[in-house]
Amino acid sequence: MIKKILGILKDDGECVYKELPNGMKMRIEDFDLWYGKTQALKSVNMNIKKNKVTAIIGPSGCGKSTLIRSLNRMNDTIPSVRTEGQIWLDGYDIYDDTADCVDIRRKIGMVFQKPNPFPFSIADNIYYGCQVNGMKVDKDEVVKRCLKQAAILDEISDRLGDNALSLSGGQQQRLCIARALAIEPDVLLMDEPCSALDPIATAKIEDLIHELKKDYTVVIVTHNMQQAARVSDYTAYMYLGELIEFGKTKQIFENPKEESTEKYITGRFG
């Protein structure tokens, strides 16, 4: 409470700044999260490198979605959620009282586990982010570019005025990816973006992730080991709300330090 009052009194310029080591985009520090009384994240520490792909793997219910949603403060929308610890973005704590959620989410885009297009036209879906953020852009150009990046333009180029809900599940998911790209975030969070896609679309998305690495920092949750191995530079393995192991993808897959990690990766989990 006192912290909150102090937070209000603080000037914008006065919020805590902490230089992150070179090449680091985000840093999760002693982060705990509770849904009501149950703790879903337990003292997570993790670094997210700039222009790299970080994969989060782990069995169902281990807190992958919870962690990735913490990175752009989407968990704030759930009333029972309480957090402790810090998450740094470019040296600023996004859980600081002076932090502005809207600003954070503008910089950290997100693709959800379930496709959730707006019931607008396809073009309006893409343009929505630019509109609410007051970005002065050419609508046609943005729509075409983002759809192309998300590997869906060819399929639907003649239907841009149609309601987005008329698309198939996989197309909807790629539309959501395109929509997230439209606001040109620094970091892109993807929660199992390929779970509803066929192998061809999945391959396209994986190519896209490779492309995106040049300009963006990507964090991806996946259940697919091959995918994690193919697309990511770093891999985090979670189990029961704890970060068990974190390291270079090559090391995690070829030479895991923890027994639990090895069992999960080789499919002998249980």
Partner: peptide, 9 residues
């Protein structure tokens, strides 16, 4: 959620 995640208020 989708809207908030795009930086809408």
């Amino acid at each position: 959620d989708a809207s908030l995640a795009l930086g809408a208020t």
